[in-house]
Computed example of a mutant assay.
Amino acid sequence: MFSIYKNKWSWLFLTSLKGISQVVLIANAFSGFIILIAITIASYSLGIITLLSSLIGTLISKLGGAEEEKINQGLFGYNSVLTGMALFLFLQGDERWFIALAGSAIAALFTAALMHFFRQTDIPILTFPFIVITWLWLLTTYRLVTFKLSPKLTPQSLSNWTLNIKGENDWLEGAVNGIGQIFFLDHTLSGILLFIAVFWAGRRLGVYAVIGNIAALLTSYSLGGEHSLIFMGLYGYNAILTILAVSIVFKGDSRHALITGIIAACLTVPITASVVTWLLPYGLPVLTMPFVLCTWIFLGARKVLPKI
C-alpha cells in the first residue's frame, strides 16, 4: 500500500517538474528541477508558488480525465506555473497567495478549453491561456478592492510618454537576463542555471536559445531600443521562446527552420515594442504575447508555405 502511494506522489512530482520545464517548451523533469532551483534562488516564495501552481495544474488535468500522454508531458502545468508566478509578483497584499493559486487553477481549465478549440487548426495554444487569465485578473484591481495592483504596474499616458534610450551597455547581463525574464527573474545565477536546464534537455535547444537571445539583443539595439530594457532581457525572452518553437519544437518538415526561427526571433522585438505601447495606458505587462503572436504567424504561414 505504501509503495502505491509513493509511486503516485513520485509521478505527481515528476510530472509537475515537466510542467515547469514546458514553460521553455521542454518535457524534461530534471530540467524542470534545475529551473525550480533557479527560481527559488532568486525568490524562495516564488519557488513555492511555482511548484504549487504546477501541482495544481497537473492535479486538475488528472482528476478531470485528460489524455494521459498530454498530462505526462506536463502540458497542463506550464500555463498554471506562469499564471501563478505573474499574479504573485504583480499583485500585493496577503491575499495574493490565494489569488495566485486560484489563478493557476483557472489557467488549467482555460488551457483545456483552448486545446479543444484549437485541435482542428493543428496550431499550439502556447502560453495564450496564461496571458489572458493574467491580464483579466490584473484588470480587476480597478473594480474590486480585494485585488491590489503592485506599484510596479502603473498606467501611463501616451501623450506624456518620452523615449529615453540612454544607459549603460552591459552585454553580458543582457545575455543572461534574456532567459531569466521568461520566469520574471533578474538574477545572474538564476539565468545561468536556466541556460543549463535548457542545454541539459538538448544541446541543440541550448544553442538555439543562445542564438535567439543574441538576435533579440542585436535587433533591439540596432533599432534604438531603451538600453535599460534591452540589457534587463525584456526584449530577449520572447525571442528565445519563439526560436525554440519555430525552429525545433514545431518545425515540421521545414528545410529552413533555423533561418525562419531567427527571423521570427528578430520580429519579436518590434512586436514587443508595439504591445508594450498598447498596454501602457492600462499598466499591464507584455508577458509572452509577442512570442505567441510571432509563433502563430510563422506556424500558420507554414500551413500554406511548408518549406519556410
Rank of each mutant, 00 (worst) to 15 (best):
W278F: 15
A108T: 10
I165G: 01
L163D: 05
D253Q: 14
A265V: 04
E69A: 12
Y235R: 07
T50N: 11
L89Q: 11
I20G: 01
S53R: 04
N238K: 05
G65V: 05
I49P: 09
L299E: 03
L279V: 10
Q181P: 08
I99W: 08
T134Y: 10
L139K: 02
D253M: 12
S31F: 09
G74E: 10
I263G: 00
P129D: 04
A38V: 06
V176I: 13
W97D: 01
E67W: 08
R203T: 12
F183L: 07
I211C: 03
T288Q: 06
T154K: 03
K18A: 00
T141I: 08
G65Q: 12
A264C: 14
L205A: 12
A239N: 06
G19P: 12
G64Q: 07
T219E: 01
L82Q: 04
G74M: 10
F130H: 07
F195T: 05
I123W: 15
I4V: 15
V292G: 03
I297E: 06
G261Y: 03
T111W: 07
R203I: 12
E226S: 14
E95H: 06
I48E: 14
V81S: 08
L217N: 00
A102H: 06
P155A: 03
P290G: 00
I35N: 00
T154V: 03
I214R: 04
S31V: 09
T288M: 07
I37P: 06
R96C: 00
S21L: 05
I271G: 09
L299K: 05
F298Y: 13
I125A: 11
A66D: 10
T295W: 14
A245I: 08
E95A: 13
W137Y: 14
L14D: 02
L172P: 13
